[in-house]
Design a binder for these strands. Structure first.
Lengths: 258, 258
DNA sequence: CGCGAGCTTGATGCCGATCAATGCATGTGG
DNA sequence: CCACATGCATTGATCGGCATCAAGCTCGCG
C-alpha cells in the first residue's frame, strides 16, 4: 500500500526531525495509545488489545487541506484519528456539498466505504493530522476471532447511525439558533471527554463548513454567533470561543420556542 | 422472549384462519424466502443460508399503527421486514419528532439498538406487517463463523450510514421540490427492485410523515404535489401517484437551479 | 349518513438566503 | 518593514421560500 501523504510532509513541520522514511515503519501500539479509552479498543481485554496491535500497522500523515480519501476511491482500510481534525463531506451531482461530520482524536473514518468497496464521501484534514491505518480485511478476520472486538466494532457503526439520526432531527426540525447551540454543545462534550476545557475552545473549521454541516449559510452562522455574544452566552473572537452561559445554551436546544 | 404483538392480532385479520398460537411456531426459511435477493442473505452460499435459517426463528406480526419497538426499549434482535411498511422516527426532548426512514420488504430494522443495547428510535408499522426476528446474540456468533454473512451484515450497516448521509445532503441543501422529487425517485427505485411498476405507486404514509422525513410541513408537501401535477410530471389522487414525466423528475434532483 | 382524519388551497408573515460592503488576520514579495 | 493580496468573518439591506393560520374538501368507516 502506498502512502502518498508522506511525500507531502514539509520540512517546516515539527515532527520533521524524524526522517520521513521512518514514519512509515513507525509502529503504533493500541495497548499504549493514550486514546485507547475512546477509540476502537474500548473495553477490550489485554490479550485482545495485543491482537489489535498487530492489526494497526502504520500511521499516515495528512496535512491541512488534504484528503485522507475521496469519494470514489477504492476502500481497503478504516482510519482512527490519532491527532488533528477532519471533516467528511458528500457531494451531489450538481456540485453542492454537505459536511456530514467532524472527526477528532479517537474517532473512526471510512465506514462509508464498506458498503460498496468504494468511499462515498471525502475526508479532509482541517489541520495537520495523523491517523492509524486499520486494514479492513484484517479487521474483519480479527473480529471473527475476538468477540469483544466484534462487539465494539458493531457498536461504533451503530453509534454512527444513531448520530446521523440526530443530525437529521437537527436539520429537519430545528431553527438556526438551536442548530448552532446543539453543535456547540456536542463539540464541547467531545472535547471535554478528551480532557479539554469545556468552556474555551478553538474552532478548527470555517463558518462556511459549520454552515454546511448545519444546513445554514455562513452569514447566518456568523450572525447567530454574534447574537449569542450579544446575549452574553458566548464570547466570540474569530475562531476562539468561550462559553459564558452554558445553561442558556442547553435551554436553546431543549426548548422549542425561545 | 415474549411476543406482545401476537396478542394484538384481531379476529378480523385475514390470516386469522391460522390459530394465533401457531404463528409463533411458524418457521421462516431464508433459503426459500422470496426476499432473499434483497435481505440479509444476499450473496450467501447454500450452506451459509442453511445456517441462517436456524438463526431466524420466528416471525412477528405488527398491526398498522403499532410499534415494533420504541426508543428506550432494550435491544436484543434485528428485524427484517417480510411484508408491510414501516417508518422509523426519533424524538427530541421537547416532543418534536423526525421521521428518519421508511422501510419496506427485505429491509432491516433495529440497527440503532446495537450502540447502547437500547433502541434510540421508534419503528411503527404503516400497514399491517410481518417481520422476521433475528436474535442479535445469535447473529453475532454466526457472523464469526461465516465470513460471507459477516461481510453482508457489515455492508448493510455501512449502506445505512451512506443512506443517512444522502438524507443529510437533502435536508441541508435542497429545496422543497428537489426534496420531494428525490424522495419519489428513491421510493420508485426500491419498489421497482421488488417487482412493482415504476410508474404507479400508492403511498403508505401521510403528507405529514413525508414532510417530517423531508424537513417540510405537510402543506408544503401537498402544494408541491399539486405543482408537480400542474406541471404534468405527476398524477396525484390522494395517496395514488402516477409518474407521467420521469425525466423531469430526475432533472429536478440533479439540476440545482430550475 | 355523518363524523373525522387526512388532504388541498388561500392569505399572510417570518426566518434565513442573498447580495453587497467592510473589517480583520495572516502571509508574501518588493 | 511596509504594501498589497488573500481568505475568512462581520454586518447591513433586501428578498423569497416555506411556515403558519385558516377555510373548505374528500373519502373511508362506524
Amino acid at each position: 500500500m502506498t502512502m502518498p501523504a508522506l511525500r507531502e510532509v514539509p520540512s517546516t513541520l515539527k515532527v520533521s526531525a524524524i526522517p520521513l522514511v521512518k514514519i512509515e515503519s513507525l509502529k503504533v501500539a493500541c495497548s499504549s495509545c493514550n486514546l485507547r479509552e475512546l477509540c476502537l479498543p474500548v473495553g477490550l481485554s489485554v490479550s485482545d488489545l495485543e491482537q489489535l496491535d498487530k492489526l494497526v500497522g502504520t500511521r499516515r500523515q495528512v496535512l491541512r487541506g488534504n484528503a485522507l480519501f475521496r469519494s470514489g476511491d477504492s476502500f481497503h482500510a478504516l482510519y482512527a484519528v490519532r491527532t488533528g481534525f477532519f471533516k467528511t463531506r458528500v457531494s451531489s451531482e450538481d456540485g453542492r456539498d454537505q459536511v456530514t461530520g467532524f472527526q477528532m482524536a479517537g474517532e473512526l473514518l471510512g465506514l462509508d466505504g464498506i458498503s460498496t468497496d468504494r468511499h462515498s464521501c471525502d475526508a479532509v484534514a482541517l489541520e495537520d493530522s495523523q491517523v492509524c491505518v486499520i486494514p479492513y480485511e484484517q479487521l474483519e478476520s480479527l473480529t471473527r476471532e475476538f468477540s469483544e472486538l466484534q462487539r465494539q466494532f458493531h457498536k461504533i457503526m451503530s453509534r454512527e447511525i444513531v448520530r446521523d439520526h440526530g443530525v437529521m432531527l437537527l436539520l429537519g426540525s430545528m431553527r438556526a439558533e438551536e442548530r448552532l447551540a446543539a453543535f456547540l454543545l456536542n463539540l464541547t462534550q467531545r472535547l471535554q471527554a478528551r480532557g479539554f476545557s469545556a468552556a474555551a475552545l478553538v474552532l478548527r473549521m470555517t463558518r462556511e463548513e459549520i454552515g454546511s454541516y448545519l444546513g445554514l449559510k455562513l452569514e447566518t452562522v456568523s450572525r447567530t454567533f454574534s447574537k449569542f455574544q450579544d446575549d452574553g452566552i458566548l464570547e466570540v473572537k474569530q475562531r476562539h470561543l468561550r462559553i459564558l452561559d452554558l445553561p442558556s445554551l442547553q435551554r436553546l436546544v431543549n426548548n422549542s420556542n425561545c
